[in-house]
Amino acid sequence: MRYYQYLQNGTKHVGVEDDAGQVTDLTALNSQIGSTLDLFKAASITGSDIDSVARGILAANKGAATTSAAELLDGAKPGCHWVTLLPPVDAPEVWAFGVTYMDSMRERQAESGSPDVYAKVYDADRPESFFKATLDRLQSPFDDVGIRADSGWDVPEPELAFVTYGGKIVGYTCGNDMSSRTIEGENPLYLPQAKVYDKSASLGPALVSKESIGDAQKLSVTLTIDRDGKEAFRGEANTADMKRDCEYLVGWLTRHNSIPDGTSVMTGTGTIPPPEFTLQAGDVVNITIDKIGTLTNTVVVV
């Protein structure tokens, strides 16, 4: 099952998509479900999972009206305004891990004047982690994402992101970790400036429960970048190529570090455009992950 958060007529809703691609408004059926975090809270109280909670609500309201997921997503695209998609979880904190794929390690070595640090991180037990965003700095699906005006080499990083509750992984979504390769390449200590700035993070479009995703380390991740209506770049990776899996990463994130419920974590990228490619204003970035969907954002200069 997939879960969406969206605004319609000024009111926030949670929708659940079933296996037939039909979305039911859970908030309309149960006013206590105002966010996906409410689903996780209910699941925690009942000792179950959000799919079981959603199925219980649907079973108690048989015949409820539905709309297709395709119609919901089309209605959220720029210029349509039928609904406004939100990040699929109200993440109070967004963290990210880097150097989790061999290709990422090699690319960061190539851009850096201090390449050895990346090889050391890749081979170490302790992963690289950094704070990426807060909820009010998080971009929604179809929102703009930014490239810095003081950077000349900029890329999106398509990443599987996991969602936590009680410090445990409870769901997954797509993440876009926008990055300045210019700034990070100058000095690894500039990483926060290369990674954290206006419009530098986006999550969506849907949240998929841990139970529905199956094996999170067997998901294909596809990045396409459209420019002037044509595909300017395409790359593919698979989470099977991650050196450190999601459970390993959350174990390190919560080590001596308390995180609030809903914290979302980007897990690194296996797809980085080549050195001759840099994002431009107006580019459209599409990140597609198996079983989750496609996160779409348009690039602007910030």
Rank of each mutant, 00 (worst) to 15 (best):
residue 222 T to C: 10
residue 230 K to Q: 14
residue 165 Y to F: 15
residue 143 D to Q: 12
residue 255 R to V: 01
residue 216 A to C: 12
residue 266 M to E: 01
residue 13 H to W: 10
residue 76 A to S: 13
residue 115 P to C: 07
residue 212 S to N: 11
residue 257 N to A: 07
residue 238 N to K: 06
residue 39 L to Y: 04
residue 134 T to G: 10
residue 50 I to T: 06
residue 48 S to C: 06
residue 167 G to I: 02
residue 144 D to H: 15
residue 165 Y to A: 09
residue 151 S to F: 01
residue 127 P to F: 03
residue 111 E to I: 13
residue 140 S to C: 10
residue 293 G to M: 04
residue 141 P to Y: 03
residue 242 M to I: 05
residue 86 L to F: 09
residue 45 I to S: 12
residue 269 T to L: 08
residue 301 V to F: 04
residue 153 W to G: 01
residue 151 S to Q: 07
residue 158 P to G: 05
residue 66 T to Y: 08
residue 107 E to Y: 13
residue 220 S to F: 07
residue 9 N to Y: 13
residue 45 I to T: 15
residue 300 V to M: 10
residue 108 R to D: 03
residue 83 V to I: 10
residue 199 K to V: 07
residue 45 I to E: 15
residue 192 P to T: 12
residue 210 K to F: 03
residue 131 F to P: 02
residue 87 P to Q: 08
residue 197 Y to M: 10
residue 138 L to T: 09
residue 168 K to W: 08
residue 36 T to Y: 06
residue 124 A to Q: 10
residue 209 S to R: 02
residue 36 T to S: 07
residue 281 A to S: 14
residue 270 G to Q: 05
residue 284 V to I: 14
residue 264 S to V: 02
residue 190 Y to P: 00
residue 44 S to H: 11
residue 215 D to I: 11
residue 300 V to Q: 10
residue 9 N to D: 15
residue 4 Y to Q: 05
residue 17 E to D: 10
residue 154 D to I: 05
residue 220 S to I: 02
residue 202 S to C: 12
residue 251 G to E: 02
residue 123 D to L: 13
residue 150 D to N: 14
residue 290 D to G: 08
residue 299 V to A: 01
residue 222 T to R: 15
residue 197 Y to Q: 06
residue 265 V to A: 02
residue 180 S to L: 04
residue 39 L to H: 03
residue 240 A to L: 12
residue 152 G to A: 09
residue 50 I to M: 12
residue 177 D to V: 07
residue 41 K to Q: 14
residue 179 S to F: 14
residue 295 L to R: 03
residue 152 G to H: 12
residue 275 P to R: 14
residue 171 G to M: 05
residue 42 A to I: 03
residue 195 K to N: 10
residue 207 L to E: 07
